[in-house]
Nucleic acid binder design. Sequence first.
RNA 1: GCGGAUUUAGCUCAGUUGGUUAGAGCGCUGGUUUGUGGUACCAGAUGUCGUGAGUUCGAGUCUCAUAAUCCGCCCCA
Length: 433
Amino acid sequence: MTVRTLQGFMELLPEEQIVMNKMKAVIAHTYELFGFAPIDTPVLELADVLLSKSGGDTEKQIYEFQKGDNHLAMRFDLTVPLAKYVALYHNNLTFPFKRYQIGKVYRGERPQKGRFREFYQCDIDIIDRDELSIVYDAEVLAVIYTVFNKLELPAFKIYINNRKILSGFLESLEIADKTVDVLRLVDKIKKIPEAAFLGELGDMGLPEEKNKELLNFIKINGSNQEIIAKLEDLNISNENFQNGLEELKTVISQAQNLGINSDNIQIDLSITRGLDYYTGTVYETFFDDYPQFGSVCSGGRYDNLSSVFMDKKFPGVGISIGLTRLFDQLRDNNLLKFGGLTPNKALVITQSPEFADKAIHLIGQLRQNDIPADVMLRDCKFKKKMEYANKIKIPYLIIIGEDEAANNNYTLKNMTTGEQSRVTLEELIKLVK
RNA sequence: GCGGAUUUAGCUCAGUUGGUUAGAGCGCUGGUUUGUGGUACCAGAUGUCGUGAGUUCGAGUCUCAUAAUCCGCCCCA
């Protein structure tokens, strides 16, 4: 048999996995900093539950199978499981409910650059009953902003828009019946030439004049304040449009109020998101110098999370970071710093096997002091032990030999600087910690 | 679901018009007289040339089939 890992599934060596896990930890920590509570849901659900909300392509991409009498499926995102979760436990939850979830999701699509069949999504959502304050739309921005800053990634921008603005505009043009198709096309405007854009609108049976108006509309650019001013100057009386505009203004001003650098947020009227359940604010995040990564974090506001599962209304807003893709692209572009093959901070080596007891005792002491440490027990030349220490990139090396044993102390070597000194146990713990 | 490309050592790849025992760099193992790594030098191991069939005196090289992988489109993180 041939041994291989399935295509579209990421598998890492320890050096990379350590960095991946650190990123995950930074994301989780930041989510908690903003008061989001962790939840976890099963990878498998009843197929009916997962497919209830989907339309079109989701069904083709979902992994599903029969086990006994149960028709099961693997989750393809964390939002539908959340909808189920809220429907099940809303009487036990306190609203507004802020939750985060970091987990793997599964999509049986064709793998290619930046596309995996199994990947981590790092989701946050804020859910409330009946009404959800628009301020949370700004808070979501603050979370993305903080996470990306803490991850020390390249310069990024969060592009935002409000779907009500575009759908209201379409209503004012009296072409609202084509909204879904038009939004999907608008989403592609950066990828296709303007002529093709107009051509496709024409193919939908829309009149040329309105298509040009639409193109000019989504091309409105400038600073956030300039775009808002231009939108106001259009004097469109459509209610949807005006509501969207007001929401967008609030989100921008509250984002500033939350301390976000305004350079990192850009209104872009062509951002619509493909998924149809978004109803207000929508987000996409790109790196300024790496647009080919695609959106590494996106999401938006939806009117009713659990509509398919229950009658009650639960509006929410949320985003998701595609961690697997993010990691993959950063690694391919040498944007990650890899530290070493081990989480250990210290490695103990001995001059000869007779000092093994001392070494083993020492790592016990270090571990009790919360210092991850190990001893090299393989009986080999001293030089080999040094090479091993070097290869795993251990920060601190501790040497025990005749002299150290006689004086009841240790040689501590900083492997980065090469400096070494003779220290007592107490000094050693202090220095390494 | 549609289209394009690739497949030779652990990795990245070379292999001229088909011609004996298939190569390089990196990595790996060992050594340069045994209490000090990263550099340098020396030595060594590793391939059913994706798989199956065909053409040929002879195939890594040509033909066909098949599989896997990668890249676009669709959709999306």
